[in-house]
Each structure stands twice: as structure tokens, then as C-alpha cells.
Design a protein around this nucleic acid. Structure first.
Length: 214
DNA sequence: ACGGCGATGATCT
DNA sequence: GATCATCGCCGTT
């Protein structure tokens, strides 16, 4: 029963360009199995990144040490560290050698709410719907970090896995991606209409350099 | 509701 | 040395 009604997604699910895979990931459930307990998130918001042809992609300038996982086989997690404090997670799409991926931006906690709240409470007090509302928050709630970069989410032995949506999914909307400084108008962000866990839209805001010299 | 800004460090040119 | 696929806090409408 791979890929249907809550079963583990097969690798073939990811063996297509990210722009096609992204909307199909909505409603799917990403689950972290750990000794502390499990946390599961039903995805409500994702973004597609098209690789070397996409100015907003980490792979735009070609293969580097950081983005190497994106060039690998589909169905693996590309985890990166940014702004000196946050992790974000992508799922790699397309055949090996092609660097497309889907950024997981937000979701609803469907299991392990208490553990997710405990992990997030370090940074404040939150309503349930905010626990995985945003790509770095989603990683915090699930406990995703450096150690999970490259993990095969289609492998039943791994601690991080992804499952098909257990039931019907709401209407899908599309719009521009959040916080990107180039290709800012391409409608490659997908979300479930009306879902309260979808993160607020925010355009890229350039930062003024510090010239104080102190 | 919305806008500005600091935190904090890896990555790449 | 600049940039960054962010977040939380604080201030103003």
C-alpha cells in the first residue's frame, strides 16, 4: 500500500521536478521517530526550488559541499543551517544529478503535540497552530538538525519518514515564495486554502550593511 | 496588523 | 565581507 492512505511514500513519488511534487506533498505527514517520543506534522505549506536554473535555489551556482545532497537521489532530506541559528528542511526531487527540491515551510502537528511544545517553548509560548508554522519552527518541533541532512525519508529504517495523506486534502493555492531575494514573483509556493497553520506571507527585505566599523 | 531590527554563524566570492 | 529559503520582540498605527 505504498503511497496511499497513510503509507510510506515510495521513492518514485519524488522522481519528478520539484514544481510537480510540491503541491502533492500537501497533506502528507512527516514523522520523526525518537526515544523521547514521536512528533508528526501534516504539511500545509511548501515551496519548490528548481535547481541550477532557479536564481533562488541554493544550487543556482552549481555543486558545493553544502548543497551536495540536492544532487543525490530523490527522497532524501536536505537540511541546511541559516541566519546563524535556524535549520530548514527540503525533500530532494528529480533524478540523481539534478538538484531540485521542495522546502517544507509549515504544517499542523498531528502527533506528539506535548513534545513539540516542549522543544519550541525554549523560544516562547505558542498556540498549537504556531508550533510548526514556518520552516525553522517546523524543524524545531520535529527536532531536525545537522544530523538529519541526507536522511532517506523513504526508508522504513530511518528516524525521519514521510507518509501519504491519510485522507482528503483541501483546495491548493499557489503564490510567490517567501523571503527570496531573486525570482521573487514565480508562483512556486503552495499551501492549503484556509489552513490556520500556513505561515504569513513576507517579501524579502534587504538589510542595510553595518558600516560603523566598531 | 504591520514594520523595523538584532541575534548569530556558515557559506561562498 | 556580504549575504542569508528566519524568528521573536518591540514599537507604532
Amino acid at each position: 500500500m505504498n503511497g496511499v492512505n497513510g503509507g510510506l511514500l515510495p521513492r518514485s513519488f519524488f522522481d519528478e521536478p520539484a514544481v510537480e511534487v510540491a503541491p502533492r506533498l500537501l497533506g502528507c505527514v512527516l514523522r520523526m521517530f525518537s526515544s523521547e517520543g514521536d512528533v508528526a506534522v501534516a504539511l500545509s505549506e511548501v515551496e519548490a526550488y528548481a535547481g541550477e536554473s532557479d536564481p533562488a535555489s541554493h544550487a543556482y551556482h552549481g555543486l558545493t559541499q553544502r548543497n551536495a545532497v540536492m544532487y543525490g537521489p530523490p527522497g532524501h532530506a536536505y537540511v541546511y543551517f541559516t541566519y546563524g541559528m535556524h535549520f530548514c528542511v527540503n525533500l530532494v526531487c528529480s533524478a540523481e544529478g539534478t538538484a531540485t527540491a521542495v522546502l517544507l515551510r509549515a504544517g499542523a502537528i498531528v502527533a506528539g503535540t506535548e513534545l513539540a511544545r516542549a522543544r519550541r517553548s525554549v523560544h516562547g509560548d505558542f498556540a498549537d497552530r504556531d508550533l510548526a508554522r514556518g520552516p525553522a519552527r517546523l524543524c524545531q518541533a520535529l527536532g531536525i538538525g545537522r544530523a538529519h541532512n541526507g536522511i532517506d525519508v523513504c526508508d522504513p529504517v530511518q528516524p525521519l519518514r514521510i507518509f501519504a495523506a491519510p485522507g482528503p486534502v483541501g483546495a491548493v493555492c499557489a503564490g510567490p515564495r517567501v523571503g527570496v531575494s531573486s525570482a521573487a514573483t514565480v508562483p512556486w509556493r503552495f499551501w492549503i486554502e484556509g489552513d490556520p497553520t500556513v505561515s504569513p506571507y513576507r517579501a524579502h527585505t534587504p538589510r542595510r550593511a553595518n558600516h560603523s566599523g566598531r
